[in-house]
């Protein structure tokens, strides 16, 4: 099996490496390592256009794409690790940095546990939206910062309200997530199959 390490390369370099390998060495099976989603999708497309059957796996930030030359007819699928249509899209909206009212210290502890445990939703955990006090979870010193960064690395989209960051003067202190606006938040809520609000 031919292995190509295209990590650290920007498009179109990874595709060109694969093209060259196919033309020069005519491998029946190819394994390619890349470290960004664009390169992974481009390589899948290229292999499919060259009549390869394709599968892909994700590990953290890295992807391993496998290509097998087609012998007869077969369905190429590049979407094995992507979420299939029937998986629910769950959006969690947190408007607070602590869980519930009563004791604030307890509320903060519960919040850490809550954020940690969200991963048990598996692939259905689709988006995390942070507004109002919730945006404070994204700045340095936040007890869940590392957990959130881990979620983001594994592909979860974290949307952080820009107006709220501005209000708390935290715009330049945010360490995780994409700054976003209300329209994107509302659209995401509309597209989600289920919205879990924590206020």
């Amino acid at each position: 099996m031919k292995t190509i390490d295209a990590r650290g390369l920007a498009c179109p370099a990874p595709v060109l490496l694969v093209k060259e390998a196919i033309e020069k060495e005519h491998p029946a099976v190819l394994q390619i390592l890349v470290d960004n989603g664009a390169a992974k999708q481009n390589i899948c497309r290229f292999l499919e256009s060259q009549q390869f059957e394709v599968s892909a796996m994700q590990q953290g930030n890295e992807f391993q794409v496998m290509g097998t030359r087609k012998t007869g007819a077969g369905d190429a699928s590049c979407a094995v690790e992507e979420i299939p249509g029937e998986v629910k899209k769950i959006l969690v909206l947190a408007a607070t940095d602590r869980m519930g009212t009563g004791d604030d210290e307890l509320g903060r502890k519960l919040m850490v546990n809550f954020i940690k445990t969200l991963k048990e939703m598996g692939k259905e955990f689709w988006r995390l939206v942070l507004v109002n006090n919730g945006v404070k979870l994204t700045v340095s010193g936040s007890p869940v910062l590392e957990i959130l960064q881990e979620y983001e690395r594994s592909g979860l989209q974290i949307l952080v309200c820009g107006t709220c960051l501005e209000h708390f003067q935290l715009l330049d202190k945010k360490q995780v997530g994409q700054t976003t606006n209300m329209l994107d938040i509302v659209t995401a809520m509309q597209v989600a199959d289920k919205v879990i609000p924590l206020t």
């Binding site: 498009c11 664009a38 999708q41 390589i43 497309r45 994409q178």
Partner: peptide, 17 residues
């Protein structure tokens, strides 16, 4: 060319956003 995977990274970023 898109079918051959010759798509700039910016297109994927725009789409994701």
């Amino acid at each position: 060319f898109a079918a051959m995977g010759l798509i700039p990274g910016g297109a994927y970023k725009n789409k994701e956003f």
